[in-house]
C-alpha cells in the first residue's frame, strides 16, 4: 500500500504543523501529562497520557455495552388519566418512521446510535492490536481516519440534554418517570467525554506508523 503512491520526497518527521493555523514547529516529545501547544493559536498538538490506549479500549467496551442496553431498555415512562406509555431510545429513533419524515428517523438513528457505536468499534479495531503489541490491523489507517471524521456527528450527549428539555415540556401534560436507560445514557455521555479527553491523535498516528514497519 505504501509503495503504490511513490512519494517523491521523504516525510519531514522532525517537524510538527498546527492543523488549525499551519504554524511550523520543531517537534519535541512531551512527557506523560505534559502537552505540546501551538504558541500561535493555542491548539493542543500532542497530549500523551500514560496507558492511554488500554484505557481508551476499556472505555470503548463500556460504551458499547451502555449503548446496546440503553437502546432497548425503557427510557422514559409517562402516564395521564389512566393511559400509560413507555419509550425506549429505539422508539425515539422510530418516531418519524411513518409518513414522509422517515428520512429523519434514519438521521436520528445514525446520529444518536449508529455513529457513536461505530466510533467505538473503530477504536477497538485500531487500538486493540496496538495494546497487544501486534502490527496494525489491515485498513487501520482508514478506520482511524473515519473515526476522526465522524467525531462531530456523534450526538449522544445532545440527545441526553434533549431528554431533559422534553421532560419539562411533557410535565405539564402528564406524569413522567425516568427509566433505567436514561441513567445509562447519562453515564455514556461522561464516558465519551473521558475518552475524547484521553485520545491523542498524534500519538495514535505515530504508533500506527511505527508498528507498520
Amino acid at each position: 500500500m505504501v509503495k503504490d503512491f511513490g512519494m517523491p520526497h521523504p516525510q519531514h518527521s522532525g517537524y510538527i504543523v498546527c492543523p488549525h493555523c499551519d504554524a511550523l514547529f520543531v517537534q519535541k516529545q512531551p512527557q506523560f501529562g505534559e502537552r505540546a501547544v501551538c504558541t500561535r493559536c493555542r491548539t493542543v498538538l500532542i497530549a500523551p497520557r500514560r496507558n492511554a490506549f488500554i484505557r481508551i479500549l476499556a472505555l470503548s467496551v463500556t460504551n458499547l455495552i451502555l449503548v446496546i442496553a440503553a437502546l432497548f431498555l425503557p427510557f422514559l415512562q409517562i402516564s395521564r388519566a389512566g393511559f400509560h406509555n413507555e419509550t425506549s431510545v429505539m422508539d425515539a429513533v422510530l418516531a418519524f418512521s411513518d409518513g414522509p419524515l422517515f428520512v429523519l428517523s434514519l438521521a436520528v438513528g445514525a446520529l444518536i446510535v449508529l455513529v457513536p457505536m461505530m466510533r467505538m468499534v473503530l477504536t477497538l479495531y485500531v487500538l486493540a492490536p496496538m495494546v497487544m503489541g501486534r502490527p496494525p490491523a489491515p485498513g487501520a489507517t482508514r478506520a482511524f481516519r473515519l473515526f476522526e471524521a465522524l467525531k462531530p456527528w456523534s450526538m449522544a450527549e445532545i440527545f441526553v440534554l434533549g431528554c431533559g428539555v422534553a421532560l419539562v415540556k411533557v410535565s405539564a401534560l402528564a406524569q413522567v418517570h425516568l427509566g433505567s436507560a436514561f441513567w445509562m445514557m447519562g453515564v455514556l455521555v461522561i464516558v465519551v467525554l473521558l475518552q475524547d479527553n484521553m485520545m491523542c491523535r498524534w500519538s495514535v498516528w505515530t504508533a500506527l506508523e511505527k508498528r507498520k514497519a
Binding site: 422514559l76 389512566g82 393511559f83 422508539d91 425515539a92 418516531a95 434533549g162 431528554c163 411533557v170 402528564a174
Partner: peptide, 16 residues
C-alpha cells in the same frame, strides 16, 4: 431530538 422524544413518548391514545 426533543421532537423525536416527545413524539415517541406522548402517545396516550385519546388523552394526549
Amino acid at each position: 431530538f426533543v421532537v423525536a422524544i416527545l413524539s415517541a413518548l406522548v402517545q396516550l391514545n385519546v388523552a394526549a
